[in-house]
Design a binder for these strands. Sequence first.
DNA 1: TAGATTTGACCCAG
DNA 2: CTGGGTCAAATCTA
Length: 300
Amino acid sequence: MEKKNGNGDWEKMKKEINELMTEGRDYAYQFGSASSQETREHLAKKILESYHKSLTIMNYSGDQGSPNSHGGGSPKSEDSDQEPLVINKSSKKSMPRWTEKVRITPGAGIDRTLDDGFSWRKYGQKDILGAKFPRGYYRCTYRKSQGCEATKQVQRSDENPLFFEISYRGMHSCSQAANVGSTTPVQNLEPTQTQEHKNLDIVKESLDNYNPQSFHYPLSSTPILENNNAYMLQLRDHNLEVFGSTSFSSDLGTKINYDFPTSGSASHSVSNSPSTVPLESPFESYDPNHPYGGFGGFYS
DNA sequence: TAGATTTGACCCAG
DNA sequence: CTGGGTCAAATCTA
């Protein structure tokens, strides 16, 4: 997500965003040790505020033909003003999108670790150019009955088959959303370890080739970008939930990356969790259940 | 038999 | 034109 046009404006914005994000991160840390519900809510608010501001700045820059692309995304500069967009249900592009990276643990049973409480139905699979493994396409089981538009794509990582990249699109509007939200296991990270560390751990681990004995789920907190009110509300609720509870299953590393469509198409980064995947088979059926993408990322 | 998965064909954005 | 995403008929499974 580097910005190229090294113009001064961008540098300035970069700095501001950096500060805001740092601020948000600090609040997140505090959140982890907050004891009262009130404090948590307050911190959650602050966190959201920080990200909101960052996003606003980014969106603004996007309008000016700025660099708004990031890893994997396609720099589409749809003129989206900084105005919160109204979600156009019919437009996939307007759907929020984020990715998550999940590591599976052979001994733990993928389906269990990855089960996010949602029911997904596979509707396609495709070989992707340059990828060793095919990508699976899933949509919410309740799409028909409840009009839930949530979908997700799952792809096994080329470099490390123990990692699955899951890309979510759209929020669940089905009845499951509420349930899952309240039961979503979220991880509680100890304040002693920084997120960076956790992420590094994941990477390191994967490089080391996975050690069954040590597990950790590095939740990377992901910024909640908001780009439209409806989604934001949902995200916010999820966050609060997440903040309050915890614990993701320990055997997977998760890395989340959100990508909102405001100014561009998706980019992503991924992650997710398969459920029943025989490690040997590239894709085979694994259970794509996964909670809305996870706010597991937000770290409390 | 209903619901889920597989898989080739089709659609469309880039 | 190519590749990603979706559709839908065929097939599988509980």
